[in-house]
């Protein structure tokens, strides 16, 4: 197990979500669920982050913000789409201003469904993301093309 996996830092962005999933992401950090015991820290700075936790169906002006945050994150990085809106657009899929899921803007590694996604499933998703993060790190160190 690498040091990266022992203490991954996450950045959270609300890309046009209803808040339901956002407050559940925050609830993960607080005493009942307490993901900090896994070494997971929430940061506000994309350049410090390993895992991008993103909620919401991504609207028109958020596309650019999401891409911007993603590009600022250092390699290796994983994206966790939290909530059904982030997965596919959810109930808002038919809205004129919603692009229909995070995958329309940036590549997603883990999908966490639910409306609102429960803290347990969010933690589960982040733990799965750790495995992918590790794979990506190995690939990057081995110099596989397209990983840097």
């Amino acid at each position: 197990m690498s040091y990266l996996q022992k203490s991954p830092w996450i950045i959270h962005y609300d890309a046009s979500s209803c808040n339901g999933c956002d407050i559940e992401v925050l609830a993960c950090l607080t005493p009942l669920y307490d993901v900090e015991r896994f070494g997971i820290l929430n940061t506000g700075n994309p350049k410090h982050a390993d895992i991008f936790v993103i909620t919401g169906g991504v609207n028109e002006i958020n596309k650019e913000v999401v891409q911007n945050i993603y590009e600022q994150m250092p390699h290796p990085k994983v994206v966790v789409a939290v909530g059904i809106c982030a997965c596919s657009g959810g109930v808002f899929r038919e809205c004129y201003n919603i692009s229909g899921g995070v995958a329309t803007v940036i590549p997603v590694d883990v999908y966490v469904p639910g409306c609102a996604a429960r803290p347990e499933s969010i933690i589960d998703g982040i733990v799965q993301a750790l495995g992918i993060l590790e794979q990506k790190r190995h690939a990057m160190n081995a110099g596989v093309e397209g990983t840097v």
Binding site: N59, S88, G89, Y96, N97, S99, G100, A103
Partner: peptide
Amino acid sequence: SIPHPFGSSQISVVKKKPEGQ
């Protein structure tokens, strides 16, 4: 994404399937 969405009644939204999903 579209100007004045409530302005006209003739709006059609076409959703493209994201790549790899």
